[in-house]
């Protein structure tokens, strides 16, 4: 089996998180939570089209669109849930706009490559694992259509 290359923005994020200590990792996560784009009107007005990620401590909703073979991600999480928003921010910054196959090839344990388990506790990582698996599942379903 050959090692598939990770999308460049994701690799960059892993390096960024890896180059600082746990306290600064939290700051990075906070920045990513603040950079998470708002939903476009077609989702903001139709929240029922988003899938809820139940494993997150706080409600997180996401949608995946595959357009011309590229994956586009949409997230909605309350401002009072910055950690969850930060996880979504990592996935958005790292995966949005990538070809479907590249997204599908992202290893399922990627959430643990940011050194966050130590900063936020391993229990809290569950939400990010669940987000990634839903993104991949929705991508797979749309590619198959």
């Amino acid at each position: 089996m050959t090692e598939t290359a990770l999308p460049a923005p994701l690799t960059e994020l892993i390096d960024d998180f890896g180059s600082v200590g746990p306290k600064d990792r939290l700051q990075l996560l906070l920045e990513l939570s603040e950079e998470l784009p708002d939903l476009p009107a077609r989702y903001a007005d139709h929240p029922e089209q988003l899938e809820q990620v139940h494993e997150c401590q706080t409600p997180l909703f996401l949608a995946v669109e595959v357009t011309d073979g590229d994956v586009h991600l949409f997230f909605n999480a309350p401002k009072e849930a910055p950690t969850t928003r930060g996880f979504a921010g990592i996935l958005h910054a790292g995966l949005d706009g990538q070809p479907a196959q590249v997204v599908l090839d992202v290893p399922d344990d990627i959430p643990f490559k940011f050194g966050l388990a130590e900063a936020v506790s391993p229990l809290r990582m569950r939400g990010m694992v669940a987000m990634l698996s839903r993104i991949k599942r929705q991508t797979r379903a749309q590619v198959a259509d």
Partner: peptide, 27 residues
Amino acid sequence: DEDVLLYDTGHIPGSFKLDWHTDLNDP
């Protein structure tokens, strides 16, 4: 807080964060 980052988005001046996972639970 439930969310470990909420304090960092703004808190009562002079207050410290005490996180239930990382500060109070044995790892």
